[in-house]
């Protein structure tokens, strides 16, 4: 039982990183990404391949994962972020499908069978084979990510991002380089998703393309909307709730996607600010014009 609770806590930690990172794109830059699971997968595969083939220690493998996911984010963000937000949604969705196909068809990624036998991290004389050791690693990472995100959104750059979200043209007139900001924040979110992928791969020690498909992207999106777009505490809450809830409703497994889809629609209609996004700021940004 305790092992199971530990397992859920570790997964919740990984989802918190994913949710906080995509919240930067949705809640702060005002863009929608539907391919976030692809960056998560790129991170997981990059990290796994580096440790399996080149025996990289975990920190180096995780850095490679962040770099690989970040580069892909940059390559995808550069052409598309000049355009309107709905284009990004479709392009990232298509990107997710392409990445999934690449994982399925390449030999080096093991095709549909995936990659087994990824070593658990051990560095600085510490061994993270035990689940609760791993939980500490995840918690430390989550705290670092949260501190970095809070520092970012409260800084000059965070205010610039919110200005872009609220009114792009006004932001531009104020001298904010809006395309550059959007590309940077999109890349940053991809980097964090890559980190989450690395944490996942070395924890589960086996990865296959199934984990990184569209349904995961939708799950992360639902977590953000549930917690409140533009609220970091909300992202944490949304990630925790949606990690635990499906476990409590095991019998309702078949209804899981139905619930997520319905939840997305109903939340936006009745409570567009999400559970925690009740602050003036979030509501104002959602109800922009009329």
């Amino acid at each position: 039982m305790t092992a199971y609770v530990l397992h859920l806590a570790i997964l919740a930690g990984i989802y918190i990183i994913l949710t906080v990172s995509i919240n930067l794109i949705i809640g702060y830059a005002g863009q929608v990404s539907l391919g976030h699971a692809a960056f998560y997968g790129i991170g997981a595969y990059a990290s796994a391949l580096m440790s399996l083939h080149y025996h990289f220690p975990f920190p180096a493998a995780a850095l490679t994962a962040m770099l690989a996911a970040g580069l892909c984010g940059l390559a995808l963000g550069l052409p598309t972020l000049r355009l309107k937000e709905d284009y990004l949604a479709i392009v990232t969705l298509g990107f997710g499908v392409i990445v999934d196909l690449v994982f399925l068809n390449l030999e080096i990624t093991g095709g549909p069978d995936g990659l087994p036998g990824i070593p658990p991290p051990s560095f600085l004389g510490l061994n993270f084979r035990e689940p609760w050791h791993y939980l500490i690693l995840v918690i430390v990472t989550v705290i670092l990510v949260l501190i970095a995100t809070y520092r970012l959104v409260d800084s000059y750059h965070g205010r610039a991002l919110r200005a872009i979200r609220d009114h792009e043209i006004t932001a531009q007139v104020m001298g904010i380089n809006t395309p550059a900001y959007k590309v940077v924040v999109f890349t940053l979110a991809a980097v964090l998703a890559g980190l989450a992928g690395s944490l996942y791969a070395h924890y589960i020690t086996f990865i296959n393309p199934e984990t990184f498909g569209l349904h995961t992207s939708i799950l992360i999106l639902t977590m953000v909307v549930l917690g409140g777009m533009g609220s970091i505490a909300g992202s944490v809450l949304g990630a925790v709730i949606l990690t635990i809830l499906p476990e409590m409703l095991r019998q309702a497994h078949a209804y899981q996607e139905l619930i997520y889809g319905g939840l997305l629609m109903l939340l936006l209609i009745w409570r567009p600010a999400g559970l925690l996004g009740r602050g003036k700021l979030s509501l104002k940004f959602l109800k922009r014009e009329s």
């Binding site: 937000e85 997305l264 109800k287 014009e289």
Partner: peptide, 13 residues
């Protein structure tokens, strides 16, 4: 009349 990403996410849902 909401931010354009709101109806977009609702349609995804």
């Amino acid at each position: 009349g909401f931010h354009p990403l709101v109806p977009l996410i609702s349609a995804i849902g």
